[in-house]
Amino acid sequence: MNIITFDSDDKLNEAAANIIIGQIQTTPRAVIGLATGGTPVGIYKQIVNDYQRGMISFRDVTTFNLDEYVNLPINHPESYRSYMNSNLFDHIDLPASQCHIPDGNAADPAEECRKYDEAIELSGQVDLQLLGLGHNGHIGFNEPAHALIKGTHVVDLAQETLEANARFFDSIDDVPKQAITMGVGTILKAKKILLVVKGADKADIIKRALHGTITTDCPASLLQTHPNLIVLLDSAAAGKLA
């Protein structure tokens, strides 16, 4: 595990973007796992800036997003498809056929999960997986539980997750109650994992995730078992680490 702390958001975003871009420069046909939420926005902005400067091409890259809400229209401004389009996909040369996001409106969600796992397997091992961290220790939408599902699956979102995501909607009642998420087993299969965490409100959970007991009650704690984990923190998130 390699933990790096930054004293500014700009430096953290630049470092994360450089890791992702470096992976693609080294492996032009890289398979990249992508995340959504507030944390990656500045990272994607930096990637777009570097693309516009001619530093990188995504023509041969394949991407897989971690998750998508269930029963939220694809063109809804808070769908993760809309998020990815506005923050990244619309601004780079990644072919639409090579960017994958679970279909939260699939008629058969279980079959959609099976097909998503199959697509990941057919693309080969994920070279680099970008992750954020939920306040309750979730990664993707893998919520704390007695046992975790290894493959892509439909999950009931925890109340804490609904409350955290309510800021993106008019009210908490508008937040979808379910999502399709890549499973922890699939996440851990990635060759390299890049965990990015920001804010003092994440200080307790990042300490628990990185230095606490490995338990499904804190899904992110399973990242301790990964052989190539890079953790980028701002100084506030790192505030309770020894």
Rank of each mutant, 00 (worst) to 15 (best):
L88F: 15
D50V: 00
R114T: 12
K45V: 04
L122S: 14
R81E: 00
S82H: 09
E111W: 03
V70Q: 11
M55Q: 11
C99V: 05
N71V: 01
E68D: 09
L131I: 10
P77K: 12
Y116L: 02
F64M: 09
A119G: 03
Y116D: 05
S86Q: 15
D103M: 04
I120S: 07
C99W: 14
A110Q: 14
N71S: 14
T62W: 08
D117F: 02
R59N: 06
E112T: 02
S86F: 11
V48R: 02
S57K: 04
I120P: 08
E118P: 06
D50K: 14
A106I: 02
R114H: 13
K45D: 14
T63W: 13
Q125M: 13
G104K: 04
F89M: 02
V48K: 12
Q98E: 13
I101P: 03
N65W: 02
Q98G: 05
N75Q: 11
P77S: 12
T62P: 13
I120W: 04
T62G: 11
E118C: 07
A110Y: 05
P109T: 07
F58M: 06
N105T: 05
N65K: 01
D117E: 10
S86D: 15
D50R: 14
N65P: 14
G124C: 08
I74N: 03
P73G: 00
E112F: 02
N105K: 06
E112Y: 02
N49D: 13
I47Q: 08
S82G: 04
D127K: 09
G54W: 00
N75V: 05
N105A: 01
Q98K: 14
R53L: 11
P102V: 05
R59C: 00
S57E: 13
Q125Y: 00
I47T: 11
Q52D: 14
S86L: 07
V70R: 14
Y83N: 05
L66Q: 01
R59A: 13
N49G: 03
Y80N: 03
Y83V: 05
A119P: 06
K45I: 03
Y51R: 11
Q46G: 03
M55I: 06
A107T: 14
D127V: 10
H76G: 00
Y83W: 05
P77R: 13
C113T: 01
K45R: 15
D90I: 01
I74Q: 05
L130N: 11
I92V: 15
D60F: 12
R53W: 00
G104V: 02
N87F: 14
V61I: 06
P95T: 04
L66I: 07
M84D: 07
V70G: 11
A107G: 15
S97I: 13
K45Q: 15
D117Y: 09
D60H: 08
D67Y: 03
